[in-house]
Design a protein around this nucleic acid. Sequence first.
DNA 1: TCTTTTCCATATCGTCCGGTATATATGACG
DNA 2: CGTCATATATACCGGACGATATGGAAAAGA
Lengths: 196, 196
Amino acid sequence: MEKTATRGRPREFDVEQALGAALRVFWDKGYESASLTDLTDAMGITRPSLYAAFGNKEALFKRALDLYESEKLNYIHCAVTAHTAKEVARRLLEGAIDTMTGECRGCMHVTVSVINDANSVREEVLARSNSCFDVITARMQRAADEGDFTQNTDVAGLTRYLVALVQGMAVQSGQGATRAELTQIMDTALAQWPSR
Amino acid sequence: MEKTATRGRPREFDVEQALGAALRVFWDKGYESASLTDLTDAMGITRPSLYAAFGNKEALFKRALDLYESEKLNYIHCAVTAHTAKEVARRLLEGAIDTMTGECRGCMHVTVSVINDANSVREEVLARSNSCFDVITARMQRAADEGDFTQNTDVAGLTRYLVALVQGMAVQSGQGATRAELTQIMDTALAQWPSR
DNA sequence: TCTTTTCCATATCGTCCGGTATATATGACG
DNA sequence: CGTCATATATACCGGACGATATGGAAAAGA
C-alpha cells in the first residue's frame, strides 16, 4: 500500500518504529487523552511529518490499533488452538499477563472503550473487541460440543466470564498490579475451572 | 461545612441535585473528558455558579466521588456482612450488577483510573479503589480463618479474582452488555466458587 | 427605602487542542 | 549541475478548554 516513491527527499525516520511509539502512547492514554504533542514527542518526529506519513490522528490510531492486534493480541488466536477448554483458558490468561506486563500496562481495547465519549474511534474499538469475544465463544462452543466440560455449561456465560477476568486483569494492571498479583488471579480461576 | 448564610440572595438551584448530575457526567466520561460545558449543561447552572458552589472542577469531582461511594458503592460494605464467603461474593456481584445497570454504566473508579494520565485526580481514585479492595480482603481473610473454604485458598488471590470479575463486568457494562449478560458472568463464577 | 451581600449572566482571559500554510533543506533524476 | 519532488522546521490557524472579571438582579437586614 505504501508508495515506493524514489523521487524526492527520502524520509528520515522509520515509519514502523514511529508507529510502535505511537501505539505505546495510545495504549497508555487512550485516544482523546493522547495529544499530538505526546505523540510527536514519543515518535521523534514533527507534526507535519506525522500528517504526511499517516494522514491524521484518527488514521494513525487505526494503524496503531492494527499493530496492537497483530503483535499484542495474537495470543488469542494462538490460545484457541489448544486442545482443551481449560488449556485455552490457561493460555488466554497467560497471554494476557505477558502482554500487560510488557512495555505497557492494561489493554488498549479496554482503555479506549471505557470512556463513554462520542468519538469516532470508540465504535471501531468496540467492534474489534466484540470480534475477539466471538473467536473465544466459537472455541468454547466447540469444546462444549466435544463434551469438554464436567457439567452443563452456559457457553456464552463462560466466555463472558473468561473475558471479564482478562478485562479485570487489564484494569488492575493499569492500576499498578504486579505480574505476581495478576498470576494469583489466573491461578484462582484455573483452580476452579469446570473441566479437566 | 456549608455556611448557612442567610444574608444575601439565596441560591436558586439545589446543590445536591446538581452534584448528582455532575456525578453522572463524571461516571460516564471520567475526569478529563468531562468538560465544564458538559457539567454545567447537565447540572442546569452556569459556570460562575459552579465555581461559587464547588470551588473548581477538581473539587467538584471529589464531591461527586464521595457521593458515588456513599450511594453507589455502599453495596460493598453491605456485602461483607454476609455470613459466608460465597454469600459475600454473591452480594458483591449482584450489587455491582445493580449499580452498573442503573442510571449509568460501568464503574467510576475503573473509568477514571484506566487512563494513564498524570492528572491529580487519578491518585485519589486509586487510593479509594485500593480501600475497597482492602475491605474485601479483610472479609475473605476472616472467612479463611473460620474455615469457610473447601480447599486451601489464597485469600489475596481470591480477592483479586473477585475484584477482577467486578471490574471486568464494569468494562463490559460500559461496552453495552445487558443485565442478563452480566448475570451470566455472576452465575458462572458462583457455580465454581470454592466453598458452600 | 437604602445598604449590603450574594447570586446569576455575559464576555473574556491565557493555554492547549488538532491541523496546516509557508519556507527551506535534501536527495533522486535528467 | 540544474530541476523537481518530497521531507522537514517554524510559525500559525480557529476552536475548545478551565477559570474569572465585570455588571446587573435579587433578597435579607437596618
